[in-house]
């Protein structure tokens, strides 16, 4: 190691090989499990459960057509989309307003609020379920989507507000002042000037809130009781009976579940690094 001249753009072939080799290996590990599930989903059940492993065998889309037509999957999918979309929209709005308030205004209760956000991350979901269930029941929200949306917001908003606060901190306050001179109220300043500049962080928030709602199982299984209200994450558990999991349908369903998350990821990924940065640096 240790070339004495500035050589960050030109590295030796060996080093280059090592670098790319490591990254390729890491990438393979990263996509491997998903790719394997994808390949398996194209095989019939007997091929999945055989101990002889092949990449392709009797390729078929039968698993997909079974999942899409013979189960309530499309309905669950729609439910999940609704829950995730609302969680995302409301989550972005409240995280942003809260993050902005905490970033810009030195109001009484600001520091305690930041601490509260951290402390909420410490509550084990499994333990909160019962008391939240009681509250939801009292509000008459059991077996409705708002119950899930509200519950997911409590998971996602504290972290997102924290992250957005960090990003807002990195936007110069001189912009706010200029907007105020132009006659913008604080909310207009936030909405028209600062929020558009925080697009990367908003993208990460969108990604995070969406994923929280999309993949959550515990609350969904506690609050939703009828089959036509299930979300995907919970509905899929029905393919996993205690003793005889239907692997072939599970693999196909897993792929179908991951696709929308992948789409959201695709739109958000450009912003992930820059969006998360400030949030991390300015805890």
């Amino acid at each position: 190691m240790g070339p004495k001249r500035p050589g960050r753009n030109r590295r030796s072939p060996v080093k280059s090989l090592l670098l790319h080799g490591t990254l390729i290996l890491a990438s393979l590990i990263a996509i491997g499990p998903i790719a394997w599930v994808l390949l398996s989903s194209l095989k019939p059940g007997y091929a999945i459960q055989s101990s002889e492993l092949t990449l392709f065998r009797d390729t078929t889309l039968a698993n997909y057509s079974y999942v899409l037509t013979s189960t309530n999957f499309p309905r669950w999918f729609l439910n999940s989309v609704i829950v995730a979309a609302f969680t995302m929209a409301i989550g972005i709005f409240f995280s942003a307003t809260t993050g902005y308030a905490v970033s810009r205004f030195n109001f009484p209760g600001r520091r305690p609020l930041m601490m509260v956000f951290l402390v909420t991350q410490m509550f084990p979901v499994a333990i909160l379920i019962v008391p939240i269930y009681t509250i939801m029941a009292r509000l008459g929200l059991i077996n409705t989507m708002p119950a899930l949306i509200i519950a997911y917001l409590t998971i996602a908003v504290p972290f997102c507000a924290w992250m957005l606060k960090g990003y807002f901190d990195s936007i110069p306050t001189s912009l706010d002042e200029a907007a105020a001179l132009d006659g913008c109220g604080p909310f207009a300043t936030f909405w028209k000037v600062v929020l558009p500049l925080a697009r990367p962080a908003v993208a990460v928030t969108a990604f995070y809130t969406f994923l929280t709602a999309w993949g959550e199982v515990a609350y969904a299984s506690a609050f939703i009781q009828t089959d036509n209200r299930f979300t995907l994450a919970y509905g899929l558990q029905q393919f996993v009976p205690q003793f005889n999991p239907q692997w072939e349908y599970l693999t196909a369903a897993a792929v179908l579940v991951t696709l929308p998350a992948g789409v959201v990821f695709f739109f958000a990924q450009r912003h992930l690094v820059s969006g998360l940065t400030a949030g991390g640096t300015k805890g």
């Binding site: 990263a30 998903i34 599930v37 999309w214 599970l250 897993a254 579940v257 991951t258 998350a261």
Partner: peptide, 17 residues
């Protein structure tokens, strides 16, 4: 993109995979 991909996979799908 490839290395961040596991983040986009819902936890229960990863668990299953």
């Amino acid at each position: 993109v490839l290395l961040v991909l596991p983040w986009a996979v819902p936890a229960f799908v990863s668990a299953f995979a």
